[in-house]
Amino acid sequence: MTTIPISWYLAVAAVLFTIGAVTVFVKRNALVMLLGIELMLNAANLTAVTFSSYFRELAGQILVFFVMVVAAAEAAVGLAIIVLLFRHRETLNVDEAQLLKL
């Protein structure tokens, strides 16, 4: 059975991370920017799992587990803030939400 070079996984993770970063920088919708952040987190997770599998060391997978938990907490609070923002401003465009004061 053929095995897959480790650099292939890292390349996929690099492409995903780049696309996620571009999403955060290009999009003006706060919700889609959060989606881009999730994409970057997943790319980092893929890197961690790849090295964990390569070195046969569980620490990388434990790290990914914690990243997922933190991502869940971040999504809950971030989405609550977005709902509030939408109720006050009637838009999710981050260019129009320049003031911290609601």
């Binding site: 095995t3 070079p5 799992v49 964990s52 599998s53 390569y54 046969r56 569980l58």
Partner: peptide, 19 residues
């Protein structure tokens, strides 16, 4: 890509039961 290019010839062992 420049950072990951050094891991060229190291295949990931398939079917590891570490996870």
């Amino acid at each position: 890509f420049y950072l990951v290019r050094t891991f060229e010839e190291n295949p990931v062992p398939s079917g590891t039961s570490v996870g």
